[in-house]
Design a protein around this nucleic acid. Structure first.
Lengths: 138, 138
DNA sequence: ATAAAAGGGATCAAATTGGTCCTAAAGGTG
DNA sequence: CACCTTTAGGACCAATTTGATCCCTTTTAT
């Protein structure tokens, strides 16, 4: 359980690639897709989400493409994951104040704890850190 | 992301009910399903998994039903969740030693950390604790 | 104008989720 | 034994989600 989907994985790979480019360098979606080994049309959707959320900025037309909208050191893994997968939410009942049935939410506190912990782990990792980390082949 | 499915939620509700019964008391699946407000046939499948894994013991025929196979204080929330949802696995790459593409698994260590943390939270909660916890209506 | 990008909607196949149904097997009871 | 009760297990099914693809529009540089 709790698996990241392809979308999430692609999102991470794609934005890491962007973060590895020289500052200000514009990348085409085709270029990012090739480098990250992700289906291009799918990645395009992902980057649309990024753009809407202000993680990357996009420009159209000749010479257009994508650039990080903020320094990589200020973009957290959590933001990237949540951008495409929605909020970290181990159980629906963490949304409303009350749990579904007329009452018991014995596990509520546990899910809350899981949520808090996962969020804090993902918030502590920046895209910059990931982009600089060595590949661990083999 | 990371949402528990209905199956997981039903599993927890069902086994909590069992844990609330007087020791040794046999419960019918129909009874558990009604109490936990879960579709009976679906819950039956869930309890089949429990039985195979030795969380509950089952007996057939008249007077048959389900009982916890071990003291509720030795059954952790993690066991229950994993019984029906599979292992806590934030990313596939935590299975094999290497990550998919010829190399980079920059986020590998992060997912490992998430996995470890979640497992430890869920392992710290026993069904007994949940069964005794007060309902938090409203 | 035209070509090069991203934006956005529609669509689609495959997998997963959430369940039902039916028959078989096992265990009591008269 | 025949019969009833109860779980076991397999087949099946609808709805949703996932993982894409396609096509047309919009923006922008030349």
């Amino acid at each position: 359980m709790m698996e990241l989907t392809r979308k999430g994985e692609y999102a991470i790979r794609g934005i890491i690639y962007l973060a590895q480019q020289p500052p200000g360098r514009v990348s085409l979606i085709s270029e990012i897709a090739a480098a990250a080994e992700v289906p291009q049309t799918f990645l395009a959707k992902i980057f649309q989400s990024f753009a809407k959320l202000g993680l990357v900025s996009s420009s159209r037309g000749t010479g257009g493409g994508f650039v990080l909208a903020r320094p990589a050191s200020t973009i957290t893994l959590r933001e990237v994951v949540e951008a495409v997968e929605g909020p970290i939410l181990p159980n629906r009942c963490l949304l409303g104040s009350a749990c579904d049935r007329g009452g018991p939410c014995r596990v509520h506190a546990v899910w809350k704890q899981v949520q808090t912990e996962v969020v804090s782990i993902l918030d502590a990792v920046t895209i910059d850190t990931l982009a600089r980390s060595p590949d661990c082949k083999g």
